[in-house]
Nucleic acid binder design. Sequence first.
DNA 1: CGTGCACAGTTGAAGCATCAAGTGTAAAGT
DNA 2: ACTTTACACTTGATGCTTCAACTGTGCACG
Lengths: 162, 162
Amino acid sequence: MADWLTAEEQRAWRRTAAMFTLLPAALDAAMQRDAGLTQFSYLVLAMLSEEPGRTMPMSELASMVSSSLSRLSHVVSRLEKQGWVTREPCQDNGRVTMARLTDAGWDKVVAAAPGHAAEVRRLVIDAVGPDRIADLDAITGAILRRLDPGGKMRANPLSQGC
Amino acid sequence: MADWLTAEEQRAWRRTAAMFTLLPAALDAAMQRDAGLTQFSYLVLAMLSEEPGRTMPMSELASMVSSSLSRLSHVVSRLEKQGWVTREPCQDNGRVTMARLTDAGWDKVVAAAPGHAAEVRRLVIDAVGPDRIADLDAITGAILRRLDPGGKMRANPLSQGC
DNA sequence: CGTGCACAGTTGAAGCATCAAGTGTAAAGT
DNA sequence: ACTTTACACTTGATGCTTCAACTGTGCACG
């Protein structure tokens, strides 16, 4: 099918589409191999690890990792079974539940982080090259703004209490 | 975790990671809504539709869509059940099987293509802007070269016969 | 020849994602 | 107060992807 894109656009899109297939697969494979985690569950642990108190409401966490609450809930169930995360209801607000990173979970993230950073550097940062990091940032920013018309782009959703 | 990336690199990577979550989901959702296809099965149909004779060996098709043979086999099974593709052994070579796009499959692609092209244009091409398409191409090219060290990047794997 | 090996493809099971439906809690409307 | 609506989740079913194991075919080497 000759899509209604110019030749240059089409070429760029096809490459981009290929990258969208291959890069996540490569990063996932490395993460699976080195830490037995998916990219996504690593991200969940990593986000919790950066929070003061290592704890966060499920919904806030979901928005941090750009996932549905449903997906997050399933994943956290698994992480809970592994002993890396616990869930507890929030006192201040009966309908939020807090996810907390355990010590074992912290250790897991600390162990996995260097390998992950190295892979990202190898496959993305160094591949793109220092001169083009700003371009990358601009392009992804532009696409994200399209995807997220309600322009959250993270103005810090103010979690009160807990 | 403060990954071992500079602040600028980290910012760019986080955005990029978010894009890698959201863009495929958005395209998939649109394709599902408009045509009842996944992005991937659409791609399979589209690749076949561009081939003269609308037919191709499974393994060549797999490499065109950057997937494992296993994944492709499952997907083609489903497409076959829908009546959009057929599979037939190749005379010239007893171990290749050819996938062929049926007339119904052709119609399906033709019906789905405009919507898909429009989504790609809206979410990627127009978001990036004409001035930056070349940058996009350069960046994805660089990353793909990293991912695909055996530098296929498509030098046409010469399918003989059938 | 024939044995071994690599290629092309399929299959079944297991894991993860998505969707629709459900529970329970807070906040508004009346 | 009482109902409604919206929110914050959870759960189970379904479907797709991945992985490991398997079948069958061609090729190379002794």
